[in-house]
Amino acid sequence: MILHHIQTSPAQDNALATCLRYIDKQDTVLLSGNAVNALLLNTWQHELAQRRIFILEEDVKARGLTERLSQFNFINYEQFVQETLHHDKVISW
């Protein structure tokens, strides 16, 4: 079980698309930085619909997106650290 970490917006970088091509069913996606913006778009909401996803709370709050993204799982840094240990490894795309 892998924690896939995406830090860039899919509008700027292919990291999320590439990750989703190679991700396994039971893996998790963590979005931080501008990657959280992906979830505002229908395309990426749809692509990620069947996946376990986390978004880094401070990045969402910083961007004023807390309400818009309220249906997703927010995690703080403490939980981020714990999740890296709950998974077998972390891949930062």
Partner: peptide, 11 residues
């Protein structure tokens, strides 16, 4: 933003 995230994760 990656380096700031790295710092916060480390901390």
């Amino acid at each position: 933003s990656a380096s700031y995230t790295a710092y916060r994760f480390t901390k």
